[in-house]
Amino acid sequence: MTQLKITPKRISFFIPALILILVFVVYPIIATIILSFNINPIPGVNIVERSPGFENYIKIATDKRFINPKGIETHSFPMGAIIHNVIWIAIHLPLTLIVGILFAVYLQYVRGGSIIRSFIFLGMVIPMIVGGLLILFSFDKDLGVVNLLLKLFGLGFLARTWTIYPDTALFSLILGSVWLWSGFSVTMYSAGLSSLPREVIEAAIVDGADFKTILFKVIIPMLKPVTLTVVAMTILWDLKIFDVVYAATQGGPGGASMVLALLMYEYFARLGDYAMSATVATVLTIIIIPVVIFWIRSVIRGEREV
């Protein structure tokens, strides 16, 4: 496609966006990085306790709420926010992919499959704060669906309010987040499936492949671009998770479900240590960067193919 030459007048198309983004996004990002090194770039913020340098990063590395060696050793919670985030990804990501692809394929063959798909999507529509409350509700000893199902299968003795015990709080939230976030992967995979050429699957049928072979040898490999997107977005979502935890457990009990984003907020709001807060935010962003780069590259590659 022909591109129009850029002229000063045409640059004005970019100006309003540029101003807003520079002031409210780019400047804050840079200021946060600077702040994390104890240097005070923002009028009104006073940091006097520590000298400029990596001190905050050393301090955070030894903070039990960030990483708790004792908990890791004894396999008990809390293990520290960063470990919790990693556990979150380790459980959530595979489940999201499996649920996504299985439901997307399965629901194609179900009457009213699109209705069920929109049921599953509801988790993506509601505020995540409500999502967190719904998780809390679902794991409640007396009211929750989870315990109701346990009782139905004769496992009533297991029933308890899962979110208030250190050993189950994090897992409850993770399972709940699978429930909330599956709408994303199911929708992505369904869209991907409907754009696959029908003939290719039919060719496999004629070639004698059974359902399993078609799924693993034809459908899943052809959906690889979708999988890459889902993987990247899910990891990002898991790392940034905040509302759900805030609404359901506030990181409790005793930090057993603390996550990075919430730790950042704790430093800011409860302890008023802005520099430490900025440090946690920066660490969070640094962890995210490889995923973002991977994702940006896949998007740009996709652009070129179009």
Binding site: P197, E199, V200, E202, A203, V206, P221, K224
Partner: peptide, 20 residues
């Protein structure tokens, strides 16, 4: 089932598996 008919088929757009 198609797989038990021992037929070969060539589709209009050839339907080659793009990842193979």
């Amino acid at each position: 089932e198609p797989r038990d008919r021992n037929i070969g088929m060539v589709f209009q757009n050839w339907a080659l598996y793009p990842h193979m």
